[in-house]
C-alpha cells in the first residue's frame, strides 16, 4: 500500500480540529495542575500530621497510577455519585488532577532549594512572614521551578491521547475515526504523530530558550 497524498490533504482540516481539542485540553488541564499543585504544596506544609500525611499519600497514589484509569473513574464513576461530567471536561479535570501531583513536587523542591541562609537572613531582619514569602522565598523559588514546570506542560500535552479512551475526539481520536471510516489508518495516524512531534519539539525549543533566560537573569 502506498501513501495517498490526496487522502492526506483531505484529512488535514479534521486533524487540525482534533489538534484544537488537544491544545484546549492541554492548556486548561495545565491551569488546573498549576493551581491544584499549589494547594497540595501548602497543605503538605500544614503542621497537622494527619493533613500532611494524607496529602502526601493521596498525591503519591495519584502519581503512581495510570492516567487512563483515573479518567475512566472520573468519566464512568462520578455520574453514579450524581456528578456527570462531559467527556472533555472529565478529561481536563483528570489531566489537571494527575499533573497537579507533579507540579506540587516541583513547588516543594523549589521552596526547599532556597538556601537556609535566606530564611535566616530574613528572620534576622525581622521581616514579617508575608514579606519573607513574597519578597525573599518565592522570587527565588520561581526561577528554579520554571524549567521543570515547562517540562510538565509538554508531558501533559503528550498524555492527552489518553482522553481518546473516554471518547474525546482529540488529535489521536480524530485520526483514528478517519481511519475507521476509510480503513486506511496509515495516513491519519502518521500525520497525527507528526503533529505531536512538531508541537513537542517546537515547545521544547521554546522552553530551552526560556530556561536560558532564567539562568542568566
Amino acid at each position: 500500500m502506498n501513501w495517498d497524498w490526496n487522502y492526506t490533504g483531505k484529512l488535514i482540516p479534521d486533524l487540525l480540529d482534533g489538534l484544537r481539542v488537544t491544545v484546549t485540553a492541554t492548556l486548561l488541564g495545565y491551569l488546573i495542575a498549576l493551581a491544584l499543585g499549589l494547594v497540595w504544596t501548602l497543605l503538605r506544609r500544614s503542621p497537622n500530621p494527619l493533613v500532611h500525611q494524607t496529602v502526601r499519600w493521596v498525591t503519591e497514589f495519584v502519581r503512581s497510577t495510570p492516567l487512563l484509569v483515573q479518567l475512566f473513574f472520573l468519566f464512568y464513576v462520578l455520574p453514579s455519585w450524581g456528578i456527570t461530567l462531559g467527556a472533555l471536561t472529565a478529561g481536563i479535570v483528570g489531566l489537571g488532577l494527575h499533573y497537579s501531583t507533579y507540579t506540587a513536587e516541583v513547588y516543594r523542591a523549589g521552596i526547599e532549594d532556597v538556601p537556609r541562609g535566606q530564611w535566616e537572613a530574613a528572620t534576622a531582619l525581622n521581616l514579617p512572614r508575608r514579606r519573607v514569602w513574597a519578597g525573599v522565598v518565592l522570587p527565588q523559588a520561581v526561577r528554579r521551578v520554571v524549567p521543570s514546570l515547562g517540562n510538565y506542560l509538554i508531558a501533559l500535552f503528550k498524555d492527552t491521547p489518553f482522553l481518546f479512551g473516554i471518547t474525546v475526539t482529540e488529535l489521536l481520536g480524530s485520526a483514528f475515526d478517519e481511519g475507521a471510516h476509510t480503513l486506511k489508518y496509515l495516513e491519519p495516524i502518521t500525520v497525527a504523530g507528526l503533529f505531536f512531534i512538531a508541537v513537542s519539539v517546537v515547545s521544547s525549543l521554546a522552553l530551552r530558550r526560556l530556561e536560558k533566560h532564567y539562568a542568566t537573569h
Binding site: K158, T160, P161, F164, L172, A175, A192, F196, A198, S204
Partner: peptide
C-alpha cells in the same frame, strides 16, 4: 516528541 499511545496505535 511523540506520545507513547500514538506510537502504539
Amino acid at each position: 516528541g511523540v506520545a507513547a499511545l500514538v506510537l502504539m496505535y
